[in-house]
Write a protein that binds this DNA or RNA. Sequence first.
DNA 1: CGCAAAATCATCCTTTCGGGTGACGCGCGC
DNA 2: GCGCGCGTCACCCGAAAGGATGATTTTGCG
Lengths: 168, 168
Amino acid sequence: MTFPDPPAAHIRTYNFRMRKHVLLYGLLGGVLIAGLKFIEYRWLVVEYSVEIYGGLVAAVFASAGIWLGVRLTRRTRQTETVVVREVVVAAPTKFVCDQQKLVSLGITPREREILGLIAEGLSNKEIAARVFVSENTVKTHSSRVFDKLGARRRTQAVQLAKEFRLIP
Amino acid sequence: MTFPDPPAAHIRTYNFRMRKHVLLYGLLGGVLIAGLKFIEYRWLVVEYSVEIYGGLVAAVFASAGIWLGVRLTRRTRQTETVVVREVVVAAPTKFVCDQQKLVSLGITPREREILGLIAEGLSNKEIAARVFVSENTVKTHSSRVFDKLGARRRTQAVQLAKEFRLIP
DNA sequence: CGCAAAATCATCCTTTCGGGTGACGCGCGC
DNA sequence: GCGCGCGTCACCCGAAAGGATGATTTTGCG
């Protein structure tokens, strides 16, 4: 029986400890009961002895209970304290398009797509074939996106798009 | 009486709650004692009644103690220390031109310079003005570098040059 | 539904690019 | 000196790119 992931292992440790505590607790109770029984015969029977015994038992078990309660939660506390939040500052991994910039420039998804294909070095004709539209449509899209970017050439558009983090 | 900062407010709440718990605890004990006293006179006195009462008291106070112990430490759990570990993956490294690739492709310094200016989005005319040569010269350089890179368009040349690490 | 934005396609025109070719000068090494 | 690489410049021509404008269809949304 294995526990591959850390959480399961933690739970197991917890249960084991709890069981140990319960056993200890029961043993303590038994000893106390025996002690009471012993005292009942040896000691003088005074008035309110039941109340005294009861209070004694209550006090002992209460402190034991508090101790146990603290003890039980301490383990939980320990696992919760080790909260390591890894904050990745600069991830060179995946490119995320700057959506804000796209919106602020008013660039539509289609235009951004054409922009990306332009950046890949494709001609208008190749782009048209790639996205299944006429070359005129590609020219319209590119013209619009150049206008929105403030570019006069496709190379300039690519440069600006990379600066604005619109394309990888 | 106000508590401006959260930490002080927490501590006070803690003490207040603790006191409240102790009071509640005492009250519960008193009620139980009274209950036991009441039962002592009304119920038939059986053998081991003391043990039964003791066990009862023990059980009640033990559970109450556990509850109290958990309750007391739960507050402490709130002040868990969150370890924020910032992991810097990769700093924006300085660009170094791949000289080997440059040589293997047979690209001359002047051609590489023109290539860089093309990548910046400049037109042939602008490049010519920048490097003080005629536009025809720029065209010759660009034509040559396109041929060496295997590019048919300047955008494609830029793409390939970036792949080959010839330009930033 | 009706409107507006987006996407589509077209036409005309100008500019830019890219390919091809040829030529000239300069420095360097054989 | 001669060849060679490099940089320079010129001309021509076709292709590609870019600008301007208009129109139609599709689509998302109140």
